[in-house]
Nucleic acid binder design. Structure first.
Lengths: 343, 343
DNA sequence: AATATATTTTTACGCGCGTAAAGTATCATT
DNA sequence: AATGATACTTTACGCGCGTAAAAATATATT
């Protein structure tokens, strides 16, 4: 059995008995060739295992089958999980996901976009860093490449935005907390990294006022993405001070809450909704680890799957239509209350 | 000020006043052109912002400047953190990292390698799934592309392996636990996903025997990568059964331990090393979240930075030398004891 | 200033594939 | 079996860049 080295499409065309242009057509869209032809090609493919040279393929195409996925922080399981969902959708749609994490660094974010630019992606799904993002660069990029933002909404950047409905989510949990105990104080970072934090802040105040309670904010210092650490330090300080008007704390996100939980544990405070508990703590996100904290964390879920689906589909539409949107579309996905042990 | 559209290297050569081959040389290695020339090019670069077409560049090069990084599970902060370290090293060395996660799926792992194949990477850093990996496919891939394995060692696959020294790490913590309390039972999955699990199992037995204690294994069911869940369920069962010969449990990894901790908490058991504590629990890895569990987790660190550095440097050597290793090199990086609250 | 050496320019070809145009074979329909 | 519509083959060109070879120029050395 002779196995000639298949070096290029020409070679593969010879051994498969089909002309090169037809082979080319096949690889661009298997459905575009006659069934009998397709079968012959696929049969040859099994025998010879040839795959087109990606670089040669994409050199001529104006837009490739690549879709960039940029998230602010891959070490955060929230984004890792989101990326996983999105990757699967992209692959299923016949595109190739290119995943890039910005490591919380604005310069890295810009670098990532520049790297993407050079691979001429068909589109990009971008979860921006937020406050620290280089907005001008993002804007320029989005004008060049069809981009859908998710998680964090920034100004009028990108063709569309998909994220969770902070107003609804925070409203939901504030209402729950008020209904089942003392109204919550809101625990957050003084200078939030993320636009969601600001929306949650406002949503908290609004919900409290709607329910006839006085909002109470606990703002802690802390830079960067080490939220658990910030939550821990802030929590320790709050607990030591002992001047809270309430025994219930709503954290701006789950990672802060996990840190706070840790602080409460160290301080010997029981957290939960029983009579023997000194504190109730709730979060926001339904972070993958929230079900294993001690106690398990009561929170509002972000609907990973829906956010991923909606943003991916929006991008596919954008790519297929070939045009840009007349109007920037924003979609807010509702969260669900996740009642667990901590509140 | 006229700003002609720079479409290709030819155009850029004109506006910069340098010949195209020299420009090409510059982009392949800025140091290879005379200083004055380099400055002229860089000056033009600032004015015209041209970047070579990646696809055209790589079409002719036998090997690209891409380095693939494949990890089994990106949603596991351990691998995300490892990937982050490695990415930085790759970028610093002038290569372009291409990060791929296998989502715990052997087929995805094979797909990832195939995708890498088509971008002709200079080399690959691979943390294989382990037991479920398609070994034959991995072997074939590694013969084609210079590959360094890390984290999980599989047979004789790849040019080198870098991972943590399980023998030493487990020895360290077993010794610590025996010295400070009752000898530990070993908590693990019955069918471990990962070669490290097996090594840790053996290291535990060896360490116990060395110290004159009877090894005691607790093996729990559970498939996949949802280790916290496995740990939680297993822990709940173990605690309910109440027939342990010891109050000390060493978990095969931190994620299992975090699940176990959660189970202990739910069962109302105090975990820690004080007299009032019913249980001691320790882990292995120093997972990013272990410092925020309740109580904080005593464990043995894996030296992320060193593992990343050693494996990246090994790959760079391999690429630079252009040859394969005569002998497969394996490096085991020592772990350090991380004493926290749980044991 | 003359020579040797290092760099750059000129010229030219090739990489692997997309794709257009014109001609030929195959298919479905009546 | 004749017809028109599809699908395929042949031929040919171009994409943007790497790279080789020879000629021209700039720099370093004596």
């Amino acid at each position: 059995m002779k196995q000639p080295k298949i070096k290029n499409m020409e070679d593969f065309a010879s051994v498969s008995g089909i002309s090169r242009p037809t082979i080319s057509k096949y690889f661009n869209d298997p459905g575009s060739v006659r069934k009998s032809t397709r079968e012959r090609i696929e049969h040859a493919l099994e025998k010879f295992d040839y795959r087109p040279n990606m670089y040669a393929v994409n050199q001529n195409r104006r837009l490739t089958k690549n879709i960039g996925v940029v998230v602010p922080y891959l070490s955060d399981p929230f984004f890792a999980e989101m990326a996983r969902n999105i990757e699967n959708l992209i692959t299923a749609a016949g595109y190739r996901p290119v995943l890039l994490g910005s490591h919380g660094d604005p310069q890295q974010e810009v670098d990532n976009l520049n790297n993407l630019r050079s691979i001429k992606p068909a589109g990009v799904l971008l979860a921006p860093l937020g406050r620290t993002s280089n907005q001008e660069q993002l804007r320029t990029f989005c004008k060049e490449i069809p981009t859908v933002l998710f998680d964090s909404n920034i100004g009028e950047i990108g063709e569309a935005f998909v994220g969770s409905d902070n107003e609804q989510s925070v409203g939901l949990i504030v209402e729950y907390l008020c209904r089942t105990g003392e109204p919550p104080a809101f625990f957050e970072m003084k200078t939030p990294t993320n636009p969601n934090a600001i929306k949650r802040h406002n949503a908290y105040i609004k919900a409290m006022e709607r329910l006839g309670h006085e909002p109470y904010l606990i703002q802690v210092d802390g830079e960067g993405w080490d939220f658990e650490e910030v939550g821990f330090r802030g929590g320790t300080r709050v607990i030591a001070a002992r001047d809270l008007p309430t025994n219930t704390i709503l954290c701006s996100n789950d990672r802060l809450a996990i840190g706070f939980l840790s602080a409460a544990f160290e301080a010997g405070l029981r957290v939960g909704l029983g009579k023997s508990c000194a504190l109730r703590i709730a979060g926001n996100d339904d972070h993958p680890f929230s079900r294993y904290s001690c106690p398990t964390l009561t929170t509002v879920s972000q609907d990973y799957a829906s956010i991923a689906k909606k943003s991916a589909e929006t991008l596919f539409d954008l790519i297929d239509s070939g045009k840009r949107r007349k109007k920037r579309e924003t979609t807010y996905i509702e969260g669900k209350l996740v009642m667990r042990g901590s509140a």
